[in-house]
Each structure stands twice: as structure tokens, then as C-alpha cells.
Amino acid sequence: MEAGEFVRYRCHPVAPELGVLHARYRRHAFGRHAHPTYAIGVIDHGSEELSYGEYAGAGDVVLINPETVHAGHAMTDEGWAYHVFYVPVEFVQSGFSKTPALTRRIVDDPSARNALRTAIRAIDEDVCTADTLLSAALANVFGRYGGLPPERGPGAPVAVAARDILSDEHRTPPSLGELAELLGTNRFALLRAFRDTYGLPPHAYLTQYRVRKACTLIRRGAGLAGAAAAVGFVDQAHLSRHFRKTLGITPGQYRRAVQERTRTAGRAPLG
């Protein structure tokens, strides 16, 4: 890690799948990736450039939907520092008739910013307080910026079928050509449909799926080398490289966060 950088990842006391990242990055750059969760955060200092020429500075609230491809790197040598909640879809879904989509990416909104910072400070309080203030912050954000998800394109059924096959066979996946043949199409049409639907080519989606599976195994107590092998990475170093590129932390830091929450909660790791 570069001088002046730090990373702390924690599991929120409400649920182990609900992560909280506090970090400062100067040289680290996130590759194009997506999360299965909402990523809702506040820039504390400095400025970050997101995908497609979007810029977030100190005080801005960043709102990213699940499965939305994005990247991130510092705009200046100062880097940027931020807090981010990684909120599972199920945590939000229960309050709406349909899964909501965030309609803005970067906002300068004092009300939302203050609510999120209050929720951040409450993480070390009792579970009821932490849960209540996080729920209030999310209600604020989705009340202001929640909407219906966009319609998918005509290639979505083929892309979804391809994703399901890759997920089921993530350890030894078929080639793009084999996948296209299984689905009765050609490799170029499949690649186009997959990019249009998920914002990534199949191989990049597969890598991120493996990282997600590794997270699940680590939460259940698996060793890092074992988790890497179980999801199809060559070795632990291979897992670590993609883990940090996607999540900004190492598998070891993630495991420590899970273990810390387990000790605090006084119960076994949850799946």
C-alpha cells in the first residue's frame, strides 16, 4: 500500500453481508467492476474520478446501483478519502413494492450527507441504534433518489442464460464460443448482448463472480488459499489481486472484519 493510504473494512453489526469501508487512496485505482449490493458513500476529503468523466469531491454523496459497472481513481496526488456502505438488495427491498434504483450517481445534498455520516458514527453504538440510524439514512437517500429500474434490452434473455451457466460452472467455465453454441447464437452476438446487459464481457463478470463466492466462503470460515482454489483462482495471490482491484481491500482484511464481527456478536460466522 502506498504511503498515506489506509483501508479499514468492517461488517456492520446488523448483518455480515452489509459492509462498511473507510479508506484513503492515492495511487490505487479500481478497475471496471460492479457490486451485488448498493454502494452508498460520502467523500470525506479530496476528489475521485468515477467512470465516464464523473467527478466526486469532498462532501459529495456517491450512489451506485447493484450490478452497475464503475471504476475509480484519484484526481490529484492528494487522493481521496471516503466512507462507503455496501448495502444488500434484500435490506432495501423490504421497504418497496419493487426493487428501487438510484436515479442519481453523485449529489451534493447536505441532508443525505449528514444522515449517512450519523449512521457511520453509530456503527460502534448498540445494534438497535446502529440499525435505526442506518435505516433512517437509507430512507433519506431512497426517498430522494429512488426510482424504478430501467428496462433491459432485447439481448437480456441470452445474457441472463449465459450468466447462469458461468455462475454454475465458475470453476471450469466454457469458452465464449462453447457458451454461444450452447445458447444457439454466435460469439459476437453473445458478447454484445452480455456487455449491453451487464456492462462487462463474460470473462470479467466471471472474475467478479468468483470474488463474490470467495467472500461467501470466507464468511463461512474457509481459509484464504482454500477459498481461492474453491472458486477457480489459480492461487491465493491470484484471488488477492482481483479482490483488491474490485473491493479495495485484501482477502485478509475482509476475513479480519468478519472475525471481528463474530467476536463482537458472540456467534458463529453467517453465510
Rank of each mutant, 00 (worst) to 15 (best):
Q93N: 08
D108Y: 09
A227G: 03
Y86T: 08
E260C: 11
H33F: 09
P157L: 01
A119V: 07
Q253R: 09
A225P: 04
L190K: 00
E178M: 14
L179S: 00
G252Q: 15
K98E: 12
R261Q: 14
A112M: 13
P174N: 11
T207H: 01
P202G: 02
A130V: 04
T246R: 04
F6A: 05
D168P: 00
D77K: 12
V7F: 09
T132P: 04
V14P: 04
M1F: 11
P36Q: 03
F188W: 06
P269L: 11
A237T: 08
A237V: 07
H170E: 05
Y9R: 10
E54Q: 13
A130I: 04
S94E: 13
R241L: 12
A119I: 07
S240Q: 15
A34W: 03
Y198E: 01
G153R: 06
P269E: 10
H33E: 05
A137K: 05
C11R: 09
R105T: 15
V89G: 02
I43V: 15
H45R: 08
H242A: 05
G177I: 02
L134K: 04
A180H: 01
R121T: 15
T250G: 10
Y205I: 00
V42C: 11
A180Q: 00
I106F: 06
G57P: 08
L239A: 03
A112V: 12
A237S: 12
R24M: 14
H35N: 05
A139D: 09
P202V: 01
L224N: 09
G252Y: 15
T172F: 13
H170M: 09
A225C: 07
H22I: 03
P174W: 03
G155A: 03
E90V: 04
Q93L: 03
Y55P: 04
A222W: 11
L21H: 05
I218T: 03
F243A: 05
P88K: 01
G95H: 07
W80Y: 14
R32N: 15
T68D: 08
H70A: 03
C215F: 01
R8Y: 08
Y38L: 04
R219T: 02
P251F: 14
G153K: 05
G223E: 15
A81H: 07
T68E: 14
L50A: 14
Y209A: 06
